Simulated scan of single mutants.
Amino acid sequence: MTAQTDLLYSETEDDLRAAVRALLADRAGHQVLLDRIETADPYVPGLWKSLAGDIGAAGLLVPEELGGQGASHREAAVVLEELGRAVTPLPYLTSAVVATETLLGLAEQGGPAAALLASLASGERVAVLAVPFATAPHAGDGDLAEGPVRAVADAVAADVFLVPRPDGLYAVPAADAAVTPLTPLDLTRPLAVVEPGAASGTRLAEGDAARAAVRRGLLAGAGLLASEQLGLAERCLEETVRHTRERHQFNRPVGSFQALKHRMAQLWLDVVGARAAARAAADALATASPDAPLTVAVAQAYCSKVAVRAAEECVQLHGGIGMTWEHSAHLALKRAKADQIALGSAGRHQDAIATLTNLPAPR
């Protein structure tokens, strides 16, 4: 009998949301981010320590016996919803989700993977999987090429890289790798070219075990990226409704005009659908459901489009001010557009859905 999917938020998840939202409102408001992206380093000083260490968010996916909080993907999804709402530049998705999940299957045997995982769970170190940020969970081995790796997200924040090689998965200290920053569309999520060096690092796993660990990390990342996209879309809708209530034309709120009400009502329906898809993906990952690959693919194929549409509507319905650099709407739009190809494009996930359901896509 198939377990019933639970899309509702628990009291624990609501409490976690309140703590993360309060922290981000206090330390990483939109004006702070607008000021930070003018510098070479978008990360707010001390914010990672507060979120990862003080709140304990970095170890949510890690069992208590391995040094973590013993929570699940559902709680991590709530954190990502809030990070998406605030468009916060932090290596949470890349380190606390993708890298952590990659290590989880290997840490059960102890050894260097377990030690590294404990340091990630405490927030003491940041690890990044050295693959292009566009790599999908169902990528073939040919997508994980040797040599310099382009477009690695949050590479500039990493203390250690998890490097897939033909003979296994290696942990390479960031000091032993060459990191060349790139200029990304989304200035709140830095990209870089990483050249880890052919002979450096500690081997964590070999052959099939290494490939399975990488796929596991990418699957969790894609599934919880949908929650980031959900949070972003919800914030864009809220800000758009607020602005159109306050902005007046012809002595009426512009939000009272029928054409705009219809656009926002349709966007609300899209966001409700995105919430269901993102929550289903988080729950499937948390319960290790055999349908998790399909549920994740559905969430990504849907949520990435909703986030972009919500951000576009936010810019357009704010009128002239929404087009300015001083307004935060462009941060959301750039994050949504960058996320649209992160961890697999919508088209890539639609192909996966066709394969997983044995319904080949039309040609």
Rank of each mutant, 00 (worst) to 15 (best):
residue 242 R to S: 12
residue 281 A to S: 11
residue 253 P to K: 08
residue 275 R to H: 14
residue 55 I to Q: 07
residue 361 A to I: 07
residue 237 L to P: 03
residue 142 G to M: 10
residue 60 L to T: 06
residue 129 L to D: 00
residue 286 A to V: 11
residue 317 L to Q: 13
residue 180 T to R: 13
residue 240 T to R: 01
residue 305 K to V: 05
residue 283 D to Q: 06
residue 345 S to Y: 09
residue 115 A to S: 13
residue 164 P to F: 08
residue 105 G to E: 04
residue 142 G to P: 00
residue 292 A to P: 03
residue 216 R to H: 14
residue 34 L to T: 02
residue 4 Q to P: 02
residue 160 V to A: 01
residue 171 A to W: 01
residue 245 R to C: 02
residue 184 P to Y: 01
residue 18 A to S: 13
residue 25 A to V: 01
residue 312 E to Y: 05
residue 278 A to E: 03
residue 64 E to Q: 15
residue 330 H to T: 12
residue 203 R to D: 04
residue 147 G to I: 09
residue 44 V to E: 10
residue 226 A to K: 06
residue 207 G to L: 08
residue 112 P to E: 11
residue 229 Q to W: 05
residue 211 R to D: 14
residue 36 R to I: 12
residue 54 D to N: 09
residue 113 A to N: 06
residue 207 G to Q: 14
residue 342 A to P: 02
residue 216 R to F: 00
residue 230 L to I: 10
residue 145 A to E: 08
residue 142 G to W: 12
residue 54 D to C: 02
residue 302 Y to H: 12
residue 288 A to N: 14
residue 146 E to D: 15
residue 292 A to Y: 02
residue 4 Q to L: 14
residue 51 L to T: 12
residue 314 C to M: 15
residue 358 N to V: 05
residue 45 P to V: 07
residue 114 A to C: 01
residue 220 A to R: 05
residue 303 C to H: 05
residue 53 G to Q: 14
residue 256 S to H: 06
residue 52 A to I: 05
residue 67 G to E: 08
residue 29 G to S: 13
residue 145 A to L: 11
residue 120 L to V: 07
residue 169 L to N: 06
residue 163 V to T: 08
residue 140 G to A: 01
residue 300 Q to D: 07
residue 153 A to G: 10
residue 34 L to V: 02
residue 324 T to H: 01
residue 239 E to S: 11
residue 4 Q to D: 11
residue 119 S to A: 14
residue 114 A to V: 04
residue 322 G to C: 12
residue 191 L to K: 07
residue 145 A to K: 11
residue 289 S to H: 11
residue 107 A to R: 06
residue 119 S to D: 15
residue 290 P to M: 10
residue 276 A to E: 12
residue 260 L to I: 15
residue 248 H to M: 13
residue 239 E to C: 03
residue 55 I to E: 05
residue 54 D to P: 00
residue 198 A to W: 05
residue 297 A to V: 03
residue 95 S to F: 00
residue 119 S to P: 00
residue 91 P to L: 11
residue 107 A to I: 08
residue 134 A to C: 03
residue 308 V to W: 01
residue 161 F to Y: 13
residue 359 L to A: 15
residue 217 G to S: 08
residue 333 L to V: 06
residue 236 C to T: 07
residue 154 D to L: 00
residue 144 L to E: 10
residue 167 D to K: 05
residue 123 G to W: 10
residue 252 R to T: 09
residue 124 E to P: 01
residue 361 A to P: 04
residue 196 P to E: 00
residue 28 A to L: 06
residue 179 V to F: 00
residue 104 L to I: 08
residue 52 A to K: 01
residue 237 L to F: 09
residue 32 V to F: 06
residue 269 L to R: 14
residue 288 A to T: 12
residue 331 L to W: 09
residue 86 A to S: 15
residue 26 D to W: 04
residue 222 A to T: 10
residue 93 L to Y: 03
residue 258 Q to N: 11
residue 284 A to N: 04
residue 10 S to L: 03
residue 251 N to L: 15
residue 92 Y to A: 10
residue 118 A to V: 04
residue 210 A to P: 05
residue 91 P to I: 07
residue 289 S to M: 08
residue 119 S to R: 15
residue 327 H to W: 10
residue 192 A to H: 07
residue 224 L to N: 04
residue 223 G to V: 09
residue 23 L to H: 03
residue 160 V to L: 09
residue 143 D to S: 15
residue 188 T to Y: 01
residue 175 A to Q: 11
residue 254 V to D: 11
